[in-house]
Amino acid sequence: MKGKILIVEDEKDIADVMILYLNKEGVQTSWAETGEKALEMLSNGAFDLVVLDINLPGIDGYQTLNELRKYSRAPVIIVSARQEDLDQIMGFGAGADDYVTKPFSPAVLVARIRAHLHRSNVEGEEIDLFRFGSWILDRSHQILSRGEEKQNLSPREMDILLFLSRNRDKAYSQNELYTQIWGNDFGDLSTVSVHIQRLRKKLEDDPSHPLFIKTRYGYGYYFTGGTE
C-alpha cells in the first residue's frame, strides 16, 4: 500500500498505534495534534488521505474539515468516540468520506484506508468527462458543471454517482451500495441515504422530485440520466 497520510489526533498513544500499523504497510505518515497544525501542514503539501479526530484542542474536527474542504479533496476518515447518528451526519455533511468510532480495531482502520487509497488511484485512471442531462461531470477534479454553474463533489459522492451512472436503471439497496462504495459489508447503512440526499441537493433542481437518482420504493436507488 502506497500513500501519504496525515493523522490528526491529540492523543499521542492513539496516534502512535495508527502510525505503527500504517508504517508496517509501507505508508508515509505525518502527525498533527491540533486542527490548526493540520491545516498548516495541508497547505504546505499534498496528502492522499486524512485521518481526523473530532475532539481536538482549539478548532475541532468539524471546523478543521470545513476549512480543509476549501482546497483539498483528499479522502477524510473521521475517527471519534462520538457515536450518535447526529455526529456522523454532521461529519458527512462537512465532507467526510468515512466515520469510525472509538474504540476501533487498527487492522480494520488500515483496511478502510487501503480501500480509500485504492479507489482514489483507480479513479485517476478513468475517462475525465461524463455527460448526463445538462450536467458535465469532471471526474479528475470531482466537479459538476452546468453552463457557468459548478458543484464540487466529495470523493464518496463521486463514487456513488459513477457507480449508479454506469449501472443505469438498475436499483441497488443500501446494503449493496455500502458494499460496493465503502468496500466492506459492515457499517451504518444510513450513511448511504445521507450521501444520496447530499448528492441530490447538488444534482437536482427539486431534490424532493429527483430526475437523476431515484428511489425504487421497497428496494433502493437507481440512476436514470434524466430520461424518465
Rank of each mutant, 00 (worst) to 15 (best):
I89Y: 11
R166F: 12
V194P: 04
H209E: 15
H118D: 13
T191H: 07
L161V: 03
L162T: 11
Y219G: 06
F47K: 02
Y221R: 01
H195C: 11
D128V: 15
L199P: 11
E25H: 09
F104T: 00
F130P: 04
M158G: 14
I7S: 01
N44W: 08
G133T: 02
T224W: 10
D169M: 10
Q28N: 11
Q142L: 15
S72F: 04
G26N: 02
K70G: 02
T179S: 14
S165M: 09
G226P: 07
Y219E: 10
V108N: 03
D16F: 04
V194L: 15
L6S: 00
P75H: 00
M158N: 12
W31V: 04
G45C: 09
D97G: 09
I7M: 01
E40L: 11
I196L: 10
P155C: 05
R166W: 09
S208M: 15
R112H: 06
V192G: 07
V8N: 04
V122M: 13
S105W: 05
P57L: 00
S72R: 01
I5Y: 01
K4H: 05
I127Q: 13
S165A: 09
L56D: 06
P103D: 07
L20N: 10
L137H: 06
E126Y: 11
D205C: 05
I113N: 04
N66Q: 13
P210E: 13
A115H: 14
L137E: 01
F130I: 12
K102S: 05
R131M: 12
K201A: 14
I113R: 06
E11T: 08
L203F: 13
W31R: 03
K2W: 05
K150N: 13
E11W: 06
